[in-house]
Design a protein around this nucleic acid. Structure first.
Lengths: 243, 243
DNA sequence: CGGGGGAAAAGCGTATACAATAATTCCGTC
DNA sequence: GACGGAATTATTGTATACGCTTTTCCCCCG
């Protein structure tokens, strides 16, 4: 594909182990794969072979498996028992569940966010929204998608509830996958200046209006999807040939 | 301790690999440890050494590490870089976050649950509530705690949203840990017949009343905690000896 | 020419070995 | 007798080796 310069420092060096900071390394690899999925550089259904990944990142399969397993818990990859890992292809039902969950949690968080948001938060968020619009205009869908998810995640963090914020982040990642499967190319994700408008309500401290706007915003994204329920993994032949 | 008969079939048998159904095995071990934590047979702060666990369950450290990692993602155990795993000891802040999250999600789910609940669901839930009361009366705190968490989890599943239901289950598990740290012995968890009352509202299809009742129910549990913020892990000596 | 069976290959699951680091204990010196 | 340091021990981190399952490809038979 196109990412080749990921990380190759000390790849062919004879020393196998010799770790300096293994934990951060793993974190970096996790983010690297996670980003590739969220940005649609790895598309739903793509297989992730352990050997290939271990070679690319220069660590053994042990470490890769650990990361793959974590990604599976985050619902970004699917682990099929003897078949290995692949990028998750969300079902229509999962898509509905994820957006219903976002509706409940993100909207529910808005009043508290409006109460706690600071000038520094607003500045950072406006910057993100601006860069997102810019990326969208420049046709860089990957960057725009990632920025949109980051915006929603950052917003949730302002509520002060780390548990709910982490949940929102996970939902946003999954939403990105859903967009990849059911989104129409063209007007994808949070286009327009919805995000800027939302920040306006939050700056004014109007939590209820922000909640209502967030609700419409999410509904608009969900409505833009075309849920056509691809052919099932195990088509029900009895139903198909019931005549 | 007291669990010794866990599983020892084919333990000393020479064959190392020879797996029949590794996945189910791992699932069982995960549940075994998870239950032990939720039932307070393993208390917060308890260390979980990999060697010991691998010997108890008769699998190698590889499998144990996998399970430990999953438990860490579920926030039931804490993985300290070079120090191994231990049962998570929730902070006061985490406790607040968890209960706020439950307040938002579980209450928000009630209307939909009231809409979809069936007679079979009601019967199963009443059975669980009954067994919980019975266990509480018999002084079996462990069983009561697990049944309470299971009740809330089962309830959430009726909403039909698997994502939110899984989240609720996780929150309930963590609540069990919170009870272990901050709960007063004596009246712990959902005593009385709160659960039965709730089922009454749901049976009547009154989603709004069920939501309000669930809100009070959760507030009551949270209020029964004594958040005294144990000595911090790194006490601020400068502040303590500031005079 | 198409389909099925078998052999080879590829890839995952698990265990084990080795290296590195944190904890503990023991000994020497002050 | 106590404190500091060094060696030993205990425990985690990582890699690698091996077995088993699945898949693929090729050849043979129909």
């Amino acid at each position: 594909m196109n990412q080749r310069q990921v990380v190759s420092e000390r790849k062919g060096s004879g020393r196998p182990g010799k770790n300096g900071d293994g934990a951060e390394r793993h974190e970096a690899i996790h983010r690297s794969i996670s980003d590739a999925i969220i940005e649609h550089r790895l598309k739903p259904g793509a297989r992730l072979r352990e050997d290939a990944l271990s070679e690319v990142f220069g660590i053994s399969r042990t470490g890769i498996r650990k990361i793959l397993q974590r990604l599976a818990l985050e619902q970004l990859v699917t682990l099929t028992p003897r078949r290995g890992a692949s990028v998750t292809r969300p079902t229509a039902e999962e898509a509905k569940d994820v957006f219903d969950a976002r509706q409940m949690v993100e909207c529910g968080l808005m009043p508290e966010v409006a109460r706690r948001i600071t000038a520094a938060d607003l500045e950072a968020l406006r910057d993100m929204a601006g860069r997102e619009r810019q990326a969208l205009k420049a046709g860089e869908q990957s960057a725009a998608i990632k920025l949109s998810a980051a915006f929603h995640g950052r917003l949730a963090h302002i509520s002060g509830n780390a548990t709910l914020a982490a949940f929102v982040e996970q939902l946003c990642s999954r939403s990105s996958l859903i967009l990849a499967v059911y989104g129409n190319a063209g007007h994808l994700g949070c286009e327009s200046h919805d995000h800027d408008d939302l920040l306006g309500f939050l700056e004014g401290g109007d939590g209820e209006r922000a909640r209502a706007f967030m609700s419409r915003h999410l509904k608009a994204i969900e409505a833009s999807l075309s849920i056509h329920e691809e052919e099932e993994e195990t088509p029900d032949l009895y139903e198909i040939f019931a005549d």
